[in-house]
Design a protein around this nucleic acid. Sequence first.
DNA 1: CTTTTAACACCTAGGTGTAAAATT
DNA 2: AATTTTACACCTAGGTGTTAAAAG
Lengths: 216, 216
Amino acid sequence: KTGRRMFPSIRVKVHNLDPFQQYYIAMDIMPVDSKRYRYLYHSSQWIVTGNTDHSLITTRLYIHPDSPCSGEKWMQQVISFDRVKLTNNERDENGHIILQSMNKYKPRIHITKHSPQMNLSQMHPSQPAEGVHTFTFPETLFTTVTAYQNQQITKLKIERNPFAKGFRDSARNRGILDGILHSYPWHSPFNHDFKPFAVELQGSCGSSTSLCITSK
Amino acid sequence: KTGRRMFPSIRVKVHNLDPFQQYYIAMDIMPVDSKRYRYLYHSSQWIVTGNTDHSLITTRLYIHPDSPCSGEKWMQQVISFDRVKLTNNERDENGHIILQSMNKYKPRIHITKHSPQMNLSQMHPSQPAEGVHTFTFPETLFTTVTAYQNQQITKLKIERNPFAKGFRDSARNRGILDGILHSYPWHSPFNHDFKPFAVELQGSCGSSTSLCITSK
DNA sequence: CTTTTAACACCTAGGTGTAAAATT
DNA sequence: AATTTTACACCTAGGTGTTAAAAG
């Protein structure tokens, strides 16, 4: 039970940080509703099949391994969350993010100044903590699964994830993927399925501060 | 030019930290003298062949990747520095520790409380900084090389380093290593050679504070 | 019936000493 | 002649979807 990475991983760029200030950057994943879904293969759509009580599980926070780091260095790089791992094991002891299968989720990015009195555990509750700036991107909404429900997603993963290279059949899939990639350039959990998004969209910007974050 | 790990890696246990205080733990490597050495194969010993000016190179600090971390968690685990990398490239830009070949060095372990006004760069100069506790272990003294000078060291590495398993010839080397291991249970750089040490020795203890560190 | 688990072959990524070549 | 660099085969370590079995 080691957990699984998300495949198209979350990658962001940050702007307008204070170059000389130290910051923590972290990610967590919030449910978008309290519904459980099922995929209808013949009609290629997700339908609601029940309810989920998310209030029982504490959301876990993934602190970016470069934290803490100066604003200058954060802004120089594309910040990748490709090492974050997801699990559906509610008793997980490896610090992975715990999600429930067949539910919809959306990742959040948190940025906060590095100060000793700031407890990182203050970052992830639903109520925003003082001094923590949180950003989400609508296009990163995804549905968790333990087995792929959609052959297009499977093909996308095999073709784009380097670790799945062993399943590539370049001759057969050539051309087929082009249309898929255009509408499904994104995302995933333990095993997964997700909504399309438009590439190069701007993410939400914190208007009350000078922090700004962009999806990349 | 990626640098090389040290093989028997530095592994320490710490005691008497404040469980609720945050600490940084780091390592650097100091020259033990200003001499350059050569190995005499026929007499199996190192002799002085010249001088080295270490004052031109700034010592680099390897901050343990778990830093910063609470005293409680530091004390729970064996702290391993197996990921530190050494290089002889004076223009290295990967943050590796820069050493010169055919010289003698000794690693140092630094522990300091995590406070925002503490600049980590204060840790590694020769003059100890305020609030930084430094420990060394005589048994970890080693000599740097680019090619092994001693067949016993080569055999030790092949037999003990998991990444060198491909060179093991269990039939031929069986028994030969026993005597070697008893007198050479230690250490290494880019490529390397090193002095013996007695296992289970206690390391130096900071008597002016309650910090205590033990080689493990 | 649907969903989850576990073992698996097949990859990426990177740490070894070796041996030949290059450097000094 | 001594030392360093480079490409290499051979490992460890770990991330894929697949598949059959297990669980519900």
